[in-house]
Simulated scan of single mutants.
Amino acid sequence: MPDFDALICLKSADSAVLPYAIEGIQAHAKPRIITIIAARSTIAQCQSLPHARHLRYIDEDTLYSGLSLERIQSILARRIHDTERAGWYLQQFLKMAYASYKLIGGRGRYRI
């Protein structure tokens, strides 16, 4: 039995390749579970995947209070007058929030 989980931060523009990513991860890495962090609307589209066993979904707006794409865009606009990389920063913060949740033993804001 594998002793690790896989994590995917997914934006809607990449949801078309998700089935291939899941297939590859399950075939080659064989994690216990694959957790997908995405917007609620993207999750709704992905939950109908035929090979969605061993998947968990987390709404990115509920993972960490106050963390959202809009908030990061606002901060970047104020500080550097450019929001082009906001999605990349959101992905990094989502991964840190998820890791923080896992490290403190499940006493975080979201529930799986």
Rank of each mutant, 00 (worst) to 15 (best):
G87D: 01
L10I: 02
I34N: 00
P31I: 08
Y89P: 04
R111N: 12
L10E: 05
S15D: 14
F4A: 01
Q73C: 15
P31V: 00
R79K: 10
G66K: 02
D61S: 15
E70L: 13
R85W: 03
L55A: 09
E84F: 06
M1C: 06
G108S: 07
I104R: 13
M1F: 14
G105Q: 09
G108V: 02
R111Q: 15
L10P: 00
L49G: 05
L18N: 08
Q26T: 04
S100L: 03
L76M: 10
I112N: 07
T83L: 02
A6H: 05
Y64I: 05
H51A: 11
C46N: 05
I36R: 04
T35C: 02
R56I: 09
L18P: 14
H54Y: 13
R79T: 12
G24W: 06
S41W: 01
P2C: 02
A29M: 12
S65A: 12
A77S: 12
A86E: 04
G87H: 04
I33G: 00
A27I: 05
D61M: 15
A99P: 02
Y57L: 08
G108A: 02
A13F: 14
L90Y: 07
Q47R: 13
D82G: 00
I8M: 07
L63V: 08
L63S: 11
L90I: 02
L69I: 00
L49M: 14
S100M: 08
A6W: 14
A97R: 01
R109I: 06
S100Y: 12
S68M: 14
Y98H: 08
R71L: 09
I22D: 01
S68N: 13
R53L: 05
P19C: 07
H81I: 00
G87K: 05
Y64N: 06
F93E: 08
F4R: 02
